[in-house]
């Protein structure tokens, strides 16, 4: 081992290479690595955020679904109730209408009967008079027998 000028040659070469590395290699590579690290961190953050957003959206959607179901159930119930009510109302109406019709029909019938009876009564009186006229063939005093005939007609 003999020390000679090579020592200084190596020192100079060392200094040159370190300077080169310091100027052209190290800053470029480390800055790019830092940039990439930042990028990856941002990406991970974004992914986390997206996951959180997704969770929130899913919760929201399921909440809305639940709400909508409840609303639908409420509406259905209400509709059923309303339908029953309508049916009941219709039934009531039909019943009252029927009753009314029956009553008016009965009243009409009664009226008809009364009228028929009156007519019959009037006709019987006339017929009885005519019959009596014919039977007697004589002109009995109409006025004298009138009372008798009316009595007879009223008995019908």
């Amino acid at each position: 081992m003999n020390i000679n000028l090579t020592l200084f040659g190596q020192m100079i070469a060392f200094a040159v290479f370190v300077a080169f590395c310091m100027k052209y290699v190290w800053p470029a590579i480390t800055s790019i690595m830092e940039e990439r690290a930042d990028k990856i961190a941002d990406g991970l953050d974004a992914a986390d955020r997206a996951m959180r957003d997704l969770e929130i959206a899913q919760n929201k959607a399921s909440d809305q679904l639940k709400e909508a179901k409840q609303e639908a159930a409420a509406l259905l119930e209400q509709a059923n109730k309303r339908a029953n009510q309508i049916i009941e109302e219709a039934k009531d109406q039909a019943r009252t209408e029927g009753d009314r019709l029956k009553q008016s029909a009965q009243a009409e019938i009664e009226q008809e009967v009364n009228r028929a009876r009156e007519e019959l009564r009037a006709k019987v009186a006339t017929l009885a008079l005519a019959g009596a006229e014919k039977i007697l063939e004589a002109s009995i005093d109409e006025n004298a027998n009138r009372e008798l005939v009316d009595k007879l007609a009223a008995q019908l």
Binding site: M1, N2, I3, N4, T6, L7, F8, G9, Q10, M11, A13, F14, A15, V18
Partner: peptide
């Protein structure tokens, strides 16, 4: 020995 010594001196 000159080579490591040169670097060590640096």
């Amino acid at each position: 020995v000159n080579i490591p010594a040169g670097m060590a001196l640096g």
